[in-house]
């Protein structure tokens, strides 16, 4: 074993203990019943109406959150890229600042803000506007997801945008393209790697979250993450929880593969 391989030791140990072994344990629980006998019932239980509904809702809300984040982050990235403040990274710093605060705390803050008699409704009432009744609805969960995960969309997109050579954009104008064409033929295709990682970093946690839906859904919005959590913490059916987790993993792998494919095919003609 040479020196270079020696340095990779800790990393290999981490992969083994932190990734491979836990995955193996999950797979073992997921593919056995309580007595330890092999079964695929845990996997197939995703087809029960309760689970399927939760999975579909999760996919739907994660998709909506991702799209909203993308629609907010991309124009913001474009603005920051061209502004003097943005170039110094100060504005980006401001936008990712919330990331440094505890995630649960931020989500709970929204709960306080959105409550029936919360801050927002008090203000709305004071100026004579109808109260906002979105707490404990999917809308509140989407709001929480967007708020929590938006920085993960902004950062990679901003990084991709500032890396685009200014000369390349000028060349596009020089060759007769208007702003819309420069955007669709040059800027968006060149920032696609950033968009893909942003989408991944928002979509995956949105799909699997249970904290946001717990806090802002008030138990009325049941996502697949909540069901898995309940199997582990309240029903103590680790086998079913692990089985559903495996199904989730498969869904995430499929989603990523689709995004990757989109990335490759989308070159130059995304819009």
């Amino acid at each position: 074993m040479n020196k270079k391989q020696l340095f990779s030791g800790p990393f290999l140990a981490f992969i083994l203990c932190g990734t491979l072994v836990p995955l193996g344990v999950i797979a073992f629980y997921g593919l056995t019943d309580r007595s330890g006998a092999f079964t695929v019932d845990n996997i197939l239980s995703i087809a029960t109406p309760e689970h399927a509904e939760a999975l579909l809702l999760s996919l739907g809300l994660a998709l909506i959150s991702t799209v909203i984040c993308l629609l907010l982050a991309f124009p913001l990235g474009l603005i920051l890229k061209d502004s003097k403040l943005g170039q110094k990274g100060f504005m980006v710093f401001i936008f990712i600042l919330p990331m440094w605060m505890n995630f649960l705390l931020r989500t709970m803050a929204w709960q306080v803000l959105l409550e029936k008699n919360g801050v927002i409704n008090n203000v709305l009432g004071a100026i004579g506007l109808p109260a906002l009744e979105i707490i404990n609805t999917p809308a509140a969960v989407v709001l929480g997801m967007v708020y929590d995960y938006l920085p993960f969309m902004i950062l990679p997109i901003y990084n991709a945008l500032i890396k685009i050579d200014k000369n390349v954009i000028e060349a596009a104008y020089d060759l007769g393209a208007n702003y819309r064409q420069v955007l669709s033929k040059v800027i968006i295709p060149l920032s696609l790697p950033g968009i893909v990682s942003g989408v991944t970093m928002v979509f995956v946690p949105s799909l699997t979250t249970f904290a946001v839906s717990n806090i802002l859904g008030g138990g009325k919005v049941n996502l697949i993450g909540n069901i898995i959590e309940q199997e582990f913490t309240t029903s103590f059916n680790w086998n079913l929880g692990a089985g559903l987790s495996l199904v989730m993993m498969i869904f995430i792998i499929i989603s990523m593969a689709l995004i990757e494919k989109f990335d490759r095919n989308g070159e130059g003609n995304l819009i």
Partner: peptide, 30 residues
Amino acid sequence: LAPNKRPLNTVFQKYALFPNMNIAENIAFG
């Protein structure tokens, strides 16, 4: 007049080819 409306074309110092397109697509852009 905006750059895209001018009857002139520029060859940039650092080439500024579109890295997301192949050679034919680059030439065909305008």
